[in-house]
Amino acid sequence: MDKSISTLTESVADIHDGAVLMIGGFGGSGSPIELIHTLIDRFRETGSPKDVTVINNNAGNGFVGIAAMIKAGMVKKMICSFPRSSNAEAFNEKFLADEIELELVPQGTLAERIRAAGAGIPAFYTPTSFGTELAIGKPTEEFDGKHYVQERWLKADFAIVKGQLGDKHGNLTYRLAGRNFNPLMCMAADVTIAQVSDLVEAGGIDPEQVITPGIFVDHVVEVKSPQQEEILVRTGAVH
């Protein structure tokens, strides 16, 4: 068993046109910036992958990461809860020009839809959004006198996530609040690709410290000293 891949380029080579792609992170925290940029580089060189649907809490910030994907023109649709940031110019321009679709999902519903997909649960009921415009067209039900909205699972073809430690079995840990959506997305995609700051042999992570068990992860690629998206945004970096 060895899920490690030696280069970033190889790790994202299978992501195809029209793919539904989950990208871990919340704002810049836990954002797999090197995997995203490798994918953008491939698009610029080959025109693929295009028409990608991206699932993330946000819709990018500044001119790096998801914002750079959008700016490059490879994103057809965003599924997110909060497409607003300190500099959301890339998304705003495309959205207001009708050049990108948006499915707006409440944050907790987004997380639970992803978790449900990973857990094999096609739909669930939540009180969130009942009576609001985000519940229009969705079935509702009353349980014990309270109203709930039916929400469906959210699956993806690929997930790209950022871990701290990873081993060759795909077991992962995360750094600080960089955990956020990453463990859920690992579960919900057909193929999960993790970049980790340190790749170790099986046994190199204390089993009690494993956050994402390797069964949810397909490929691990080591990126020593990864860049931090928020710092890139604040220093005006452009990819």
Binding site: F82, P83, L104
Partner: peptide
């Protein structure tokens, strides 16, 4: 109008 954003408020 504009770009809608809900975040965690509805939850």
């Amino acid at each position: 109008k504009g770009v809608p954003a809900v975040g965690g408020a509805m939850d």
